[in-house]
Design a protein around this nucleic acid. Sequence first.
DNA 1: TCTACAAGTGAACAGTGTCAACTTATTGCG
DNA 2: CGCAATAAGTTGACACTGTTCACTTGTAGA
Lengths: 222, 222
Amino acid sequence: MTARKPRPTRKRIDAGARRAQILQVAGDMFAKDGIDATSMRRIAAKAGVTAALLYKHFADKDALLTAISEGFFVTLAGYMEKAIEGVNDPVARLKAQMRAYVTCGIDNPRAYHLAFMTALPRLRRGAEMKAFRERRRRGEPIAEVEMTLGMKCFGRLEQAVADVVEAKLTRSKDVATLSEVVWAGGHGLVSLVITHDDFGFSPTGKLVDQSIELMLHGLLRP
Amino acid sequence: MTARKPRPTRKRIDAGARRAQILQVAGDMFAKDGIDATSMRRIAAKAGVTAALLYKHFADKDALLTAISEGFFVTLAGYMEKAIEGVNDPVARLKAQMRAYVTCGIDNPRAYHLAFMTALPRLRRGAEMKAFRERRRRGEPIAEVEMTLGMKCFGRLEQAVADVVEAKLTRSKDVATLSEVVWAGGHGLVSLVITHDDFGFSPTGKLVDQSIELMLHGLLRP
DNA sequence: TCTACAAGTGAACAGTGTCAACTTATTGCG
DNA sequence: CGCAATAAGTTGACACTGTTCACTTGTAGA
């Protein structure tokens, strides 16, 4: 006469902890197996839980992916912050920021793809982002707390560009556009390298060096 | 006593025509609704055919997408070819190639995403591509026929860079790396603009102009 | 006219994201 | 202590996906 129900053994844990656990499992699975292999059911199974439960913590799969993506922004901000510690020359700082961005992307290809090469509906906070850029353009100070993680990262790059412009070292003074161009340069490099790894690119180090070199020569006035 | 089977009305057409028709339908649907909404069943329905039939013409969905993607390479090659008609100055030619690349990408965002921002298994002909680049590096001539469509497009860009290098106008002489850097610049621009259309970028025209300007200043020696 | 083959179909399989209705465990309260 | 409220979790389904295999049907040539 053992119990009919075969020991459900469900461990209930507090919502916050479960959310964190799910995110952890999902993040690992995503980084290892890619987006397609990371299904709600597989995540749930690995977390020792039912798929339906995931929906108590994340509105849908996009929301879960967005959360993973935001984790990456934290990582990226870390790379960029560390890169300029103790560096004072504006040009050196800009170089360091670019290098940090590219390195972080190449180090975390899956997450980079998710964060920057996928149009996650939830990540697109159009109006917010535009407003942020408007205010920056007008030179308004913006509190850290107000910023999206993505904004913080781009903001870092933009600030580095602004510093170089302010030091009167550049050909153009259009900080906004210049920042976008610099971003595009770095982003292009990362995204090509991580998605066409069979193209036979020059060694990554050389590629990154030459790219940063070229962009700065283009940016700075002779 | 009408026929029991309700008039199958199956129109049989020749395999080649059917393949072309499917490709057409799939291409249109993909360009309009994106990759997720373009399911095998929806394609089949719109083509007036069963999903199973698609597999007589394409090994799997990837193969179908690859075919669409290759159609885009034809378009891109067209843009690039047209752009340099009658242009003789090497610097002007390089500029024209870059602009054509970027314009084509922005004009066909979905196809661009598929061709350059998605790792389609079938598109990755690693060894082939590497060999092609090796031979180019050694200056061997390569017959048009031998080339993949993708190779042709990159080859065009590389050739334009090579011409500028040969005219002794550049800082560096490393054609291979330089070409990759130039490609990355253009690619970064396109891919950012088409995937983060809510970021509040500077007007595209301005962005493209400044980007090309900057890259060329970086490339050319003073 | 019969046959061989190409063109096309039907039905199923295993997997997906998602949700409504249900059950179970835990916690605070009288 | 016992009971109710609520948080945590599950069941089972729905409509969809890519894909395959056995089957039928139309058509061209002998």
